[in-house]
């Protein structure tokens, strides 16, 4: 039986969405996409494929030229952009921590602009530091005193601060060294198992996509090519999927042939 209860509707839905620059150049063409509640949908593709554009349309940092996007079953045009963004956590590769705020203030930004009382913010900050595996003493440090991995953990904690149901992550681990990246990927998986957020995750890294995604959407030139679970993705005979997987295998092989360095 079909019901239209909020839980059955996709958490995020794109219907025939296109995005054009003022110059007329089309960054996204007729995108149809549904993100289920609690899943991690990975947008995979190379630079310029439209992944980041898709992500920014969800929190209205960009506005589509055509089509409709729904979040929680409501069209984005009905949402107040500020309200919408405060219930969507946002993590980007450059982290974008506020350099003039210490770690605690960085993490507490959304609760603060939401007007939470100070003691509640403080408790929440401690809770989040623990959640992302950072020492409580770090709260009073400034971003410039942190390592890249610590900064990105603060970035994740900040995105989770007001307990949003959605998380948008734009290559969050892309700038980290391989060991730290693997560590944060594992922690993200564990965290996601506990929290069950609806996550849209952008990456060009196939391994990351296979590891973190419940489903993988492969994008190319502003279009969605396929949407698969990681298993289906590896088994796919679609030439474009095969080409992407092969390109990655070649990279991995040349990497290993070079031997340890």
């Amino acid at each position: 039986m079909m019901t239209d209860s909020p839980n059955n509707r996709p958490a995020i839905q794109f219907r025939d969405v296109s995005y054009r620059l003022e110059s007329g150049y089309e960054l996204l063409r007729n995108l149809n996409l549904a993100v289920q509640r609690g899943e991690t949908l990975v947008l995979l593709g190379r630079s310029g494929s439209g992944k980041t554009t898709t992500l920014k349309l969800i929190n209205r940092l960009l506005v589509q030229s055509q089509g409709e996007i729904q979040v929680d079953g409501r069209s984005l045009v009905e949402w107040d952009a500020i309200r919408l963004r405060r219930m969507i956590g946002y993590v980007i590769q450059e982290v974008g921590l506020f350099p003039h705020f210490n770690v605690a203030r960085n993490i507490g930004v959304v609760p603060q602009i939401e007007g939470w009382p100070a003691d509640r913010i403080q408790n929440r900050v401690q809770e989040l530091l623990h959640l992302v595996g950072l020492e409580p003493q770090l709260a009073s440090r400034y971003p410039r005193d942190l390592s890249g991995g610590q900064r990105q953990r603060v970035g994740v904690a900040r995105a989770l601060a007001a307990d949003p149901s959605f998380l948008l992550m734009d290559e969050p681990f892309g700038a980290l060294d391989p060991i730290t990246r693997a560590e944060l990927q594992r922690e993200f998986l564990a965290l996601q198992q506990r929290l069950g957020k609806t996550v849209v995750f952008v990456t060009h890294d196939l391994r990351e996509a296979l590891l973190l995604g419940t489903r993988i959407a492969l994008m190319e030139s502003g279009q969605l090519l396929v949407m698969h679970t990681p298993d289906e993705f590896l088994r796919s005979t679609n030439p474009l999927v095969v080409a992407y997987v092969d390109a990655f295998d070649t990279n991995l092989n040349t990497g290993s042939r070079r031997g340890p360095s």
Binding site: N59, L61, I82, R83, L84, R85, R86, Y90, I92, E94, V95, G96, L97, F98, P99, H100, V109, V110, I113, G155, R158, A159, L168
Partner: peptide, 27 residues
Amino acid sequence: VDRAVVEAGRGMGMTDRQLLWQVELPL
């Protein structure tokens, strides 16, 4: 002001005024 910092602020739901007073002007 670092573009990533402004984008993070906007993406987290800061109003234009909050972005100006809490992020852009101090920096």
